[in-house]
Design a protein around this nucleic acid. Structure first.
Lengths: 217, 217
DNA sequence: TAAATTTTTTAGACAAGACTAAAAATATTT
DNA sequence: AAATATTTTTAGTCTTGTCTAAAAAATTTA
């Protein structure tokens, strides 16, 4: 049995270590999870005892196969619930994260799988992140940052890197949404801002915004 | 902010005190919640500190207005999630309780209300229990025990008192479900068993079963 | 109503998870 | 490579929610 706290640590380590093979530092986890390094050390030991993590003192942590699967399952639940909230309960994508943080800890394999079926097996959540399957595998989205798109070319907005409240609100205000077709018109050398065209209108976006937009070509 | 544990105690006190006015004993709560009397005393004090319960040493507890509303909201969430699980995710009514016990603690007013709308404002959960509204009010179901139904009369199965796994399985096996129209054919004086007719077939039910079936006339 | 029984509360302990402050190990400078 | 700085761990404390054992209050019985 994995506790709620343990699940949160697994998730953090998974996200920091991406492939799950790289060792992650205590401080990085502490920052991610908004706690202190000493608390992290304590928890890492528990995860190692339960065979969920590989841990060598002063050398950082990585997840075991078992730990990686457990983390992927939590992420799977999180993203499926986000799809549910947006597609079925009319939430907007900038208000679902907190609620999904709670729902991701509900324990019932059958529930996850029935929910998956009910949502018709979505492959990505409302932010464009891929949803792991039952075995923790997923095909990562093949998107490139908008700066790497040639002038004049077209792509579909499929992923946003920064999912902070402020950024999502900015997108809403400017009527930019996942799935929008975007054409890169020009780049201003002075401040790296971009002019793009979408939905028959032109829009100038700053460097800060552009850095967070990813398109599939 | 009300903790998960506090919510469980509120629910127990609410159910034991029904109208919320009667004082409930420490032991009764301990039994309901599968804990010890000393733990209950501790928690009751916290609830009283938070103005959720009225507590006088050695005299039992009752809920305050605030406590009763909080309890009703937890019950509202529990029952709405049960409807969701049965109606949308194809669970059968005897497997939803445990999952709803977890889901009832998810915190988001908007979530509850959107879920309510998505389910088209159900008034009863899959076991026939009424679902409180936002203000904690509900019109209790007007049903009578099947023993009180006259021989030859017809009613609709609308509520089952005992919601244990074993009993729900019995009902499934005998193809008895909420909403079924039932006619009381005869009563056997020796063992108080009843012969009933439903879906064009006759069925003999024992006293133990009959005590748990409630019909609306 | 006094004695016995039951219920409730108190006192003290424990596990989980988090924290602070100090010590130990590792990394970086000079 | 020694000195300094940073990171990580340890030691000890705190809170929440639980428990056992003992004390106190209420209730039942004789």
């Amino acid at each position: 049995m994995i506790t709620l706290s343990e699940e949160n640590y697994l998730k953090a380590i998974y996200h920091l270590g991406k492939q799950g093979t790289v060792a992650v530092s205590t401080n990085a986890i502490a920052e991610k999870i908004q706690s202190k390094a000493s608390s992290v050390t304590d928890m890492i030991k528990k995860l190692a005892d339960k065979n969920l993590a590989n841990y060598i003192k002063y050398q950082g942590v990585s997840l075991t196969k078992k730990g990686r699967l457990a983390a992927a399952l939590v992420i799977r639940k999180h993203r499926l619930w986000e799809v549910f909230l947006v597609n079925k309960l009319d939430f907007s994508w900038d208000e679902v994260h907190e609620i999904a943080e709670q729902l991701e800890h509900i324990k019932s394999l059958k529930l996850v799988n029935q929910l998956d079926a009910f949502l018709e097996y979505p492959t990505h959540d409302p932010h464009g992140d891929p949803i792991p399957d039952k075995d923790g595998n997923y095909s990562p989205i093949k998107s490139v940052n908008i700066f790497e798109v040639e002038i004049g070319k077209v792509g579909v907005l499929s992923f946003v890197k920064n999912a902070t409240d402020a950024f999502l609100k900015y997108l809403n205000k400017n009527k930019l949404a996942l799935g929008d077709t975007i054409k890169v018109i020009e780049q201003e050398p002075f401040d790296s801002s971009l002019t793009i065209e979408t939905n028959n209108r032109k829009l100038v976006i700053s460097k800060e915004v552009a850095q967070n937009l990813y398109l599939t070509l």
